[in-house]
Simulated scan of single mutants.
Amino acid sequence: MNMHNIYIYISLELRRITYESTPASIIEQIALKEAVHPLRSLDDLRTRLGPNRRCYAFFHPSFLLEEPLVFVHVALIENCIPCSMEDIDKFTTKNEGEGEEERNKKVAVFYSITSTQPGLSGVDLGNFLLKRVVDVLKKDFVNMETFVTLSPLPRFRKWVEGKVKQQMKKGNEGRAKDDNTKTVSSSKFVDDTLFTKKEKLELQKVLKCSNLE
C-alpha cells in the first residue's frame, strides 16, 4: 500500500445516512449513484434509509466533503439469511420505527455497495468500508452475530448444483445400460452439455463472459 492510499484510509470519515438528518444533496447523490439495485421510487428510498435498514458512506474531509466516496446499504434481519431483494423487503418492512425489536436483530445483510469515484478505482475502499461498518454494527447491536452479502445472482449456486446432479444421473444411467463400454468415473458427464445453448446466452448476458462456449 503506497503512502497516498494510506493517507486516504486514515482520513476517511464514516457517516450513517438517514432520511431525517442527512442533507438532501447527499441523499440525492446516494439515490442517483446507486449501481446495484436502482431505486424504484421515493418510498423505496425512504425504506432503504428507514427502520431495519442502514446506509453508511465514507467521506473525505480534505476534498469532496459533501460527496460520498463509497456507500453501502445494509438490511437488519432477525434470524435468517435472505436470497433476494424480495426476501429483504419482506423481512424488514414489518416495523414502523427503531426500537427494542430492531436492536435484537442478529443478521446484517450487505445487499448493495457502490463506489462513486472512478479515479479511486485502485483503492479498495469497499472492503475497508465493510470492515468499519461491521465494527459499528457489533457495537450497536449486542445480538448481531452473522454478517453476509447478498448474491448478485440469487439461487445461482442451487441452480448449478441441480444441473450437475442431473448430468451425473444421466451419466450413471448411460453406463448401466451399456455393459460393453469401458468403466468410467461416475462423475463424467454424458454427451449433452451442462448448459443448453439458450442458458449459455443468458449466462453470458448476466456474467458478461464468454468462457461457456
Results as ranks from 00 to 15, higher is better:
109 V>G: 05
193 T>D: 15
56 Y>M: 07
66 E>T: 06
142 V>A: 13
165 K>Y: 11
54 R>I: 04
201 L>W: 05
141 F>N: 02
53 R>S: 10
193 T>V: 10
91 F>G: 01
122 G>R: 13
61 P>L: 09
47 T>F: 11
105 K>N: 12
211 N>M: 00
158 K>R: 14
63 F>C: 14
38 P>Q: 14
30 I>F: 01
47 T>Y: 12
171 G>M: 06
69 L>H: 00
54 R>Y: 07
10 I>N: 01
133 V>A: 00
162 G>K: 12
19 Y>A: 14
211 N>E: 02
203 L>I: 11
128 F>A: 04
32 L>C: 09
37 H>N: 15
69 L>A: 02
167 Q>W: 05
114 T>V: 06
67 E>L: 02
188 K>H: 08
201 L>I: 10
186 S>T: 11
104 N>M: 05
124 D>S: 14
61 P>H: 08
2 N>I: 01
93 T>Y: 00
177 K>I: 06
184 V>D: 04
169 K>S: 07
44 D>P: 03
34 E>L: 07
192 D>Y: 12
109 V>D: 02
103 R>Q: 14
14 L>F: 08
190 V>E: 09
99 G>R: 05
38 P>C: 12
145 E>T: 12
21 S>V: 08
14 L>S: 05
105 K>F: 02
162 G>I: 05
23 P>V: 07
131 K>I: 01
44 D>C: 09
9 Y>E: 08
59 F>A: 03
121 S>L: 09
52 N>Q: 15
194 L>N: 09
50 G>E: 01
117 Q>F: 07
38 P>V: 13
189 F>I: 05
110 F>D: 03
90 K>L: 14
116 T>I: 04
189 F>V: 03
66 E>D: 15
136 V>K: 10
63 F>Q: 12
95 N>C: 06
96 E>D: 10
42 L>H: 13
199 E>S: 06
67 E>G: 02
204 Q>A: 12
185 S>P: 00
195 F>N: 05
85 M>R: 04
53 R>Y: 10
